[in-house]
Write a protein that binds this DNA or RNA. Structure first.
Lengths: 343, 343
DNA sequence: CTGTTAGCGCATTCAT
DNA sequence: ATGAATGCGCTAACAG
């Protein structure tokens, strides 16, 4: 470490004027150097570069974004960083790095109430200045026409709105239900997801279609709300599984719910899959780690994240993208499903 | 949808002046209303609020952060969103939500070369304005004294610098190596991690200590560089495992490396754990999904992320925090380790 | 109670 | 080739 290398800046962050002062030039000159604009004498250029190096100056994303139109930063807006959103993030990160974009994942404060509208708030706070475009994960309300391109992942129900990417919830849930039917189950319960998301409605529809296809009469008392959440599902499952006519199998709308069912079964002393088969949807990391490992419909979460990002980049370049992209879901059989008890 | 509800704003983002114009007041007045300051007539307040609602206005994070000193946003700086960083993120997110902070996870562009210095660049770009404090994940260079509080997770080697959180790499690697020794192994190889990270050096040290403790002579040809990466480790393992005197067990410095060893073994037709035992470190989600499921030293990644965030919040409040926090690592035995062949 | 003035850090005219 | 002036959206301090 050199003895007296760096003339300590005022204190705190090094700003462009610190550099200008130290190099004996004006602020605009430094700006030109840093941004590689023409019109700077070689000697000046070199001197400024040296000072920039010494002081460790980097342009403030905030300040420059306020002036410039593009920041080269893409935003991913989530309600919360949990298993699902974070898997998408990994895929998006790879795609962003490949395309030379920086990634800013943002989780705003969810308002006390039903957390509805977080996506609008987050988008408003970041759009127009900080980020060039946004990927929004499971938006629950209609995204208003915005100043920046937006791609949604697994969005709310309803048409219109931005381009979306998701997996084939309808087909996937048909396969999931059929898997249980093929194991001999006929009393199959379903835990619905969040009713404000299209995926939840499609998964229930697929469940009903597969039942119908197999000639199994639909029993409305076997369909309960799980809200895509472990705790809520566990509570409801406790009640369901103590009924005299309890089901022999459960199709949960996502893995978090399925894990809730597993918890309830464990609490009641029911063995899975001997006494009860359980299948989920998503294949988040927790699915493989559950006891027993969860059979589930795997969504290609990495690919979905990457695809959404690539579409956004296409939009940023002025290109066109398909309105709806559905990626296939795949059955992954693990240890939580088996033949009907007593067969 | 009401017919002619909203007077379309100029176009693009709705700014504070759009609101001011529509409400017939000055810009600062809107600012006061939005920020809940006193000194606004009830009638004006109501009118402004209505317009804000109609136009869907939200203050720009960028602009307000430039003026204000605190943004209520905490930054998490990572080189890339991958399994490790993303697990930390989940824990941090929970802690942030609990404390009422918003989270901004940022992955800048890694410079072409060795990606050294990304943390300094990211920090400079965000600090001072956008974020109140930062958690930096596996920084590889010394973080200069900055204007904002910083906590590092699993940092580079060397002293000084910000407060850090990590898990007990030394003790953990002792346990890992001992596990292999107890299974009867004596020829145990080690894949080192990135030499610029303290955790990698400690893991190698623990390995050597456990060997010494068991009276096993240290063989330098059994220690190779894996760089914490799957591909690099797989390539090196291919060579190692075709030697005549190949080891019967491998301790990889992290799970990504261990998975590389698994790949190489598979490619060579070696059965795990019958022909070769493999143990990793971290317990990222991929560990449980590997074939066979990977025995590993589990780091409490959620807790580490949450702990770092809580320490940062303490610092933001002007409090003191310990210089170094080590959380325990725990042996998780899965299917990739077994007794020595032929015992 | 409200509007005017100033300035956060930077990039962009336009002069010189 | 360089510097002075201007404004991005917003808020703090003051003036009216």
């Amino acid at each position: 470490m050199p003895a007296d290398a760096i003339p300590a800046p005022t204190f705190g962050r090094v700003t462009i004027s610190d550099v200008a002062r130290a190099a004996g030039v004006s602020v605009p000159t430094v700006s030109k150097v840093v941004n590689g604009r023409y019109g700077v004498a070689p000697a000046t250029l070199k001197r400024v570069m040296t000072v920039v190096e010494e002081l460790g100056y980097e342009t403030s994303l905030v300040a420059s974004s306020l002036r410039r139109q593009r920041t080269n930063v893409i935003g991913i807006l989530v309600a919360e960083f949990e298993s699902f959103s974070v898997e998408l993030l990994k895929g998006a990160s790879a795609a962003a790095a490949e395309a030379g974009y920086e990634l800013l994942a943002y989780s705003g404060l969810v308002a006390g109430n039903g957390s509805v509208g977080w996506e609008r708030r987050s988008l408003s706070r970041l759009a127009g200045t900080l980020i060039d475009g946004a990927v929004i994960v499971t938006p629950t309300v209609l995204i208003p026409t915005t100043s920046i391109p937006v791609v949604a992942i697994d969005p709310h129900t309803g048409q219109g709105g931005p381009a979306t990417v998701d997996s084939d919830s309808l087909g996937g849930s048909r396969v999931a239900t059929r898997h249980l039917i093929e194991l001999g189950h006929r009393r199959i319960a379903h835990f619905r997801g969040r009713s404000d998301l299209a995926s939840a409605q499609l998964r229930e529809a697929g469940y009903r279609e597969s039942l119908a296809e197999a000639g199994i009469e639909f029993d409305p008392t076997l369909v309960l709300d799980g809200g895509y959440q472990t705790a809520q599902t566990a509570a409801a499952a406790l009640e369901l599984l103590t009924r005299a006519d309890r089901p022999t199998a459960v199709f949960a709308a996502n893995d978090m719910s399925a894990i809730g069912v597993l918890q309830a079964a464990h609490e009641l002393g029911l063995r899975v899959p001997e006494d009860l088969s359980v299948i989920g949807f998503d294949d988040i990391p927790e699915a493989a780690r559950a006891t027993p490992p969860l059979t589930t419909m795997a969504q290609p979460l990495h690919d979905i994240g990457a695809q959404a990002l690539r579409m956004l980049i296409e939009l940023l370049g002025g290109g066109d993208v398909p309105e709806r992209v559905h990626l296939p879901a795949k059955l992954v059989v693990r240890g939580s499903t088996g033949p009907v008890p007593g067969q």
